[in-house]
Computed example of a mutant assay.
Amino acid sequence: MKVMIVVTHLLGSGHLARALILARAFQHAGHRATVVSGGMPVPVLDRGDVPLAQLPPLRSDGVNFAQLLDDSGALVEQKTLNARKALLLHRFDEIRPDVLITELYPFGRRVLRDEFTAVLMAADKLADRPLICASVRDILAPPSSPQKADKTHSVLARYYDAVLVHADPQVMPLDASWPVPDGLRSKLHYTGFMAPADTTPPHQTAGEGEIIVSAGGGDVGAQIFDTALRAAQSDARVWRVLIGGAQADQRIAQLRANAPANVIVEATRPDFRALLHRAAASVSMCGYNTAIDVLQAGCRSVFIPFDAGAEVEQTIRATALAKLPGIEVLRSADLTPDSLLSALRVLEHSPDRAPATDGFDGARETVRHVASLREQSP
Results as ranks from 00 to 15, higher is better:
323 K>I: 08
283 V>R: 13
281 A>Q: 10
167 A>K: 10
182 D>E: 12
177 S>H: 15
126 L>G: 10
248 A>K: 06
129 R>D: 09
14 G>Y: 13
261 A>Q: 00
340 L>S: 05
375 E>P: 03
140 L>R: 05
200 T>V: 08
79 K>Q: 06
238 V>H: 14
128 D>K: 11
134 A>N: 13
279 A>D: 03
135 S>K: 01
8 T>W: 10
297 A>R: 04
196 P>W: 01
275 L>F: 01
213 V>I: 12
87 L>W: 03
69 L>I: 02
300 R>I: 01
145 S>T: 10
213 V>P: 04
257 A>H: 13
1 M>N: 04
35 V>T: 01
325 P>F: 08
223 Q>W: 08
306 F>W: 04
112 L>K: 06
117 T>Q: 10
179 P>F: 07
230 R>K: 10
92 F>I: 14
49 D>Q: 11
32 R>M: 06
107 F>R: 03
239 W>R: 11
161 D>E: 15
271 D>S: 03
286 C>F: 08
156 L>D: 11
262 N>S: 01
176 A>W: 14
348 E>L: 11
165 V>S: 01
64 N>L: 13
72 S>M: 12
160 Y>A: 07
233 Q>A: 09
156 L>N: 03
166 H>C: 06
60 S>H: 00
296 Q>V: 04
27 Q>G: 00
309 G>Y: 00
330 L>A: 02
352 D>A: 11
215 A>Q: 15
153 H>F: 01
233 Q>K: 14
54 Q>C: 14
216 G>E: 01
332 S>Y: 07
339 S>T: 11
1 M>I: 03
157 A>L: 04
313 E>Q: 09
26 F>L: 09
253 A>P: 06
236 A>W: 08
70 D>A: 09
50 V>Y: 03
250 Q>C: 07
188 L>D: 05
227 T>P: 09
203 H>Q: 15
268 T>Y: 10
112 L>I: 08
12 G>D: 07
282 S>L: 15
225 F>E: 07
2 K>H: 14
214 S>F: 09
282 S>R: 04
307 D>I: 00
355 P>S: 00
7 V>Y: 07
17 A>E: 12
74 A>I: 01
141 A>D: 14
249 D>S: 02
118 A>H: 13
364 R>V: 05
342 S>F: 08
226 D>T: 14
186 S>D: 10
378 P>M: 10
331 R>V: 06
54 Q>M: 11
283 V>A: 11
251 R>H: 15
359 G>P: 10
224 I>F: 06
219 D>K: 05
376 Q>D: 13
353 R>I: 03
177 S>Y: 10
290 T>Y: 06
30 G>K: 12
233 Q>W: 10
118 A>S: 12
